[in-house]
Design a protein around this nucleic acid. Structure first.
Lengths: 248, 248
DNA sequence: CGTTTTTTTGAGCAGGATCAAGCAGCGTGG
DNA sequence: CCACGCTGCTTGATCCTGCTCAAAAAAACG
């Protein structure tokens, strides 16, 4: 997976902590607005950690009063009813920031879907930086607005899209998040970070319907199934038309 | 509705602009964090306006580069697909703030559902205040987080709730927003700010199903229908159990 | 009042759920 | 090395919730 990815070390920026070099959050995430010395302070209290699928990240972070950046992998935010019905209400990818926008009374769980690497630090450390850097607050706010926007796109999908459209929309979401500036024309391989049950919980469907729609897409030549968690997408444009993305 | 509500004029605060006295936004909304002189500056550029149902508030505000507080009424945020399918992705009540968290690329419309009174002011005026008052930015951020939370609750409702549960959940939402600290025990009258078609667009259902579920709730004694837009709710607790609110 | 809009009600249909097997991959242990 | 159990995925048969189509009833409005 990481073999053909360029290392993004800042050769000319030796003030940047070792921990932070080649970190996505440093460039696009919340850390992007921090000055080198602030980065230094934060990184001194930061630790990287790896979490297996199904690890409960929410209680892990809140119990220790820590925040974290997602370095790699996918984190799912779920809501569960007493009768067992479950709905994924958000997915977090690198370099998303975890822990601050979870509002107090929220009954939302954060769980690793794939292997997840986190860079975590004490909440207090970030709160101090926020106090002295309005830019940082703005950056975090921007992420929240982006999440709100995505949530609203999914409200449309859940309320108004058919099962085939939902599944295509999901594949499109993964495709664009895995590589935001993908070549329009070419086909490409796609790693599915969610298993069927999770896709169902995300799309408001059952496992069976998700499975049927996947075979349906395959039989119509929109995708090739390589193995359980890997597909080949023939064309982004076709996928987009299958998803019936709303007007822009 | 307003008869038994105390007037909230700050007798002792004669520096508070006339325009702002007895305004909800002044107490719970974004204006709550402003100092009297800031309030003065802002109010000098503010105007109140009334908007009939179906007025397009989004283009009205963005074309004039103005933001606004909702003083009364209900604003719906909708997404529409090319084929006509529509989904309401958010409802704004007083004293919500309009205009800033609509991210640039968002294809979301803001439309009045009821008569809506707004207090609007130039975007630049607020941006200046934001620059000098970190508190204000934090306040706006809080509202965005609250909206994100509500959106996620509806993701669960749209993905996993049945039609009867959806309709009950909607009534519960209106009931709690109309009067956040309502007496637990007693029955009460409720004004529905949305017509059937809008309820359908909010709940991801058709008009017919909404209508059927309403008569269903009536025949089971959960509500009394007074007229098209007015119902009597027998008990909040019963409504809550009908809605199958997820675990907390 | 007639006209239009909104809501209700009914009959029939279908998309997706449910129930129930079967299958494929995979680690474990005999 | 294969039998075994386990987990995750697919496939099939049947059912039912909510949609579609149609029409009447009830409000709103000029």
């Amino acid at each position: 997976m990481g073999k053909d990815r360029k290392e993004r070390v800042d050769i000319h920026n030796s003030d940047v902590p070792v921990l932070c070099r080649s970190c996505e959050a440093r460039h696009q995430g919340v850390c992007a607005v921090l000055a080198p010395d602030q980065l230094q302070r934060l990184s001194r209290q930061s630790t990287k950690s790896v979490h297996a699928p199904k690890s409960d990240l929410h209680t892990q972070l809140t119990s220790q009063e820590r925040y974290a950046n997602v370095l790699s992998g996918v984190v799912k935010l779920t809501k569960t009813a007493r009768d067992g019905r479950q709905q994924i209400v958000g997915l977090q990818f690198a370099p998303d920031f975890l822990g601050r926008d979870q509002s107090p009374g929220s009954d939302t769980e954060a769980t690793a879907s794939t292997n997840v690497r986190l860079c975590s630090f004490p909440a207090s450390a970030l709160d101090e930086l926020v106090a002295e850097t309005p830019e940082l607050e703005r950056r975090i706010h921007q992420q929240t607005v982006a999440e709100l926007d995505e949530a609203r796109d999914w409200l449309f999908a859940l309320g108004r899209k058919t099962a085939p459209e939902k599944v295509a929309s999901f594949l499109l979401l993964i495709a664009t998040h895995a590589n935001p500036d993908r070549d329009e024309e070419e086909g490409f391989e796609l790693e599915l970070p969610l298993k069927r049950a999770e896709m169902a919980d995300f799309l408001g469907l059952t496992i069976e319907t998700v499975s049927r729609q996947m075979t349906n897409l395959r039989s119509r030549g929109v995708i090739d199934v390589i193995d359980r968690g890997r597909i080949q997408v023939e064309s982004l444009a076709v996928l987009r038309s299958e998803a019936h993305v709303d007007a822009g």
